[in-house]
Amino acid sequence: MDSTDDITITRRNLLIAGAGATATVPLSVAAQAPAAEPAVVSRVSLEVNGTMRTLEVDTRTSLLDVLREHLHLTGTKKGCDQGQCGACTVLVNGRRTVSCLSLAVMNTGAKVTTIEGLGTPASLHPMQAAFIKHDGFQCGYCTPGQICSAVGVLDEIRRGVPSHVSADLNVQPMVSAAELRERMSGNLCRCGAYSNIVDAITEVAGARS
């Protein structure tokens, strides 16, 4: 009997203690975190879509978050935030880059081109126009990253960068469907618009050559 009471009391006390702990943890975190680990602010100057921008940012800020949250260029999308989906792809000094895995402060002096800088609704970049013509998207969330990546891919092929499916390392790579699929494997599309994306890129590549 005594032991039953003890258990009851213990359980009740445990629940009360647990509730108290639950209530106090967020408060203590909120109170202590800023004091224990103050954010460090640093200045970054970079050129975005042709305009010089200088900002004071927390050193932890990714290039992606600077583009979206500080410069309000929300065309660039945050998907996985760990470099696996490609939705945040932008061109940095002309090369396709996942902006989620680059710190803003590491991009001082860089020239960044986002989907907003490639073209405008009134004057589309050829890759944007081709994606529309070929239905290279459904929901559109991955599309800015796909288009920036595709522009980078055609430049890489033009410069002779080989890929995993290039048959011969020592000849100019082709613009084949197999090449485009391999080179675009860092851009995921959950709607599955892949075949139309390949058609769009193929058309732009053909128009250039």
């Binding site: 396709r96 891919v153 890489e156 080989p162 995993h164 390392l169 494997s185 860092g186």
Partner: peptide
């Protein structure tokens, strides 16, 4: 993509392009 690596050290070019994605290899 270096022409000397592609010609003389093909196994290195092949290993590199087998890894990660195009964006990550650029970085």
């Amino acid at each position: 993509a270096d022409a000397r690596v592609r010609r003389d050290y093909g196994v290195l070019s092949r290993a590199l392009v087998a890894g990660a994605s195009g964006q990550l290899r650029n970085m």
